[in-house]
Design a protein around this nucleic acid. Structure first.
Lengths: 244, 244
DNA sequence: CCCGACCGTTGCACATGTTGCAATGGCCAT
DNA sequence: ATGGCCATTGCAACATGTGCAACGGTCGGG
């Protein structure tokens, strides 16, 4: 494990939400300012950080460049993008695409329909496995032994009164999803937000991706939300067909 | 300048377009595999890199997370997003938002209308100063001395037969833009692509951002493209108003 | 099944790259 | 003009990163 690299990456993290001065960065790293200055010179030279004329540092365009190149290289995301958009337009709600990777599910695309509202999700953000539609939809169709291992490893943070909090309850929910063919998050992650989500199978029949429609309980009743399931499943099937 | 940090960042760059093996990464860095392995352990532990069960490395979700947090913290981008979208819907073409930063213009938002086609631009990518509409629109409204300095510093790569290739011609073009109030890229960067672009002023009256509509010469004639200028300028003005 | 080739990882010693200190120069407010 | 704060740079000490060698795992061929 490289201490110096860890420090540089911590700088990137620290600058993600807000620009900072050298002093703030040095304090954050618990290093001398001269050390922080040299680290910043390196990350700045490679475009990962920019500083303005008042010596305030913020993340630079290189990071955006890498991130969007990565997104552009994701086959499933590329194939799914026009369908997400169409789904968002048809439903006017927020549509997500998530991927299971290294034991967590990450949002890799999002389309906000005309009536969508602000919610937790953002591209690059982890979707908690036990209480988000997209994560549940993916996990339900993973191999048995993997489902069991993951269920034991989850920290069952209760986000709302309705959040699933035990491995047994979670595995039961995954069984219901397998039977039904799609997942429902019924205010388990955020109060007033519910969603339906479907798995997307790869050409090899493996499920690593999921597609969801999220909305507020004020916008759509549970009944209305469930009425979107056929469209959702059809969209997932269309994406699967395009994947080959 | 930190050598070790530079190596780690080079790894991130190397993995942006394609997953790689440890050996490929070590070769790329010209270091021993054990050194590369340890560097990778660090960037992996912080989520910047992921590896699969066949020991193939690729960029991880942390980078996406940072990139989208950065985008969410850009006031102008946030304010402009719904307007970009509306403009894309109204025109059916590709709409861009760029920002001048550290002597280069970077695309920070993009909306593809229903008739848009693939083109060079991507969020995070630099827009060449001398031949893209959005960059020219920004530079035209920078302070005099800055315009002059930047014009001298540009490497006038001739992307097409129509690309501006001298500082004098470039400064003349910027004068025309100042007079007209908006910029035109007439196949100067990509054959068959033309666009109109407008500056976006900050509340302090400073121009660091620009908005453009890009399309193919097959989709819209020059005349039709120019007919979009009023809508473009009106959209820029609306964004400016929202910025306060 | 055995062997060889290739892979990635880890302990080790040591070379070198990183670090904090002190000095310097710049900027701003009094 | 002065003092305080800032960031940067030269220096030398030393902590950490490095390559080597050994190891264990996997795969393909005989």
């Amino acid at each position: 494990m490289s201490q110096t690299v860890g420090r540089a990456l911590s700088i990137l993290e620290f600058l993600a939400d807000e620009p900072r001065s050298l002093g703030q960065i040095a304090d954050h790293l618990s290093v001398h300012k001269s050390t922080a200055s040299r680290l910043l010179q390196t990350v700045e030279a490679q475009g990962f950080v920019r500083r303005d004329d008042r010596h305030i540092y913020r993340l630079g365009p290189r990071l955006l460049n890498l991130a969007f190149r990565t997104l552009a290289a994701m086959d499933v995301r590329v194939a799914a993008a026009p369908h997400l958009r169409r789904l968002g337009e048809l439903t006017a709600q927020t549509v997500h695409l998530g991927v299971l990777d290294g034991g967590e599910v990450t949002y890799i695309d999002k389309h906000e329909g005309s009536q969508s509202v602000r919610m937790y999700s953002r591209i690059g953000k982890a979707a908690p496995l036990h209480c988000t539609g997209v994560a549940k939809a993916i996990l339900a169709f993973r191999p048995d032994d993997e489902r069991r291992v993951l269920a034991e490893r989850i920290a069952y943070t209760p986000f709302t009164k309705r959040t699933i909090t035990t491995p047994a309850a979670f595995l039961g929910e995954l069984e219901r999803i397998r039977t039904r063919g799609f997942a429902v998050d019924d205010r388990e992650h955020e109060d007033f937000i519910h969603c339906v989500a479907a798995p997307i199978r790869s050409p090899e029949g493996e499920v690593s991706h999921g597609l969801s429609i999220s909305t507020t309980t004020m916008s759509l009743s549970r009944k209305q939300l469930l009425e979107l399931a056929p469209l959702l499943l059809e969209t997932a099937a269309t994406i699967e067909k395009e994947l080959g």
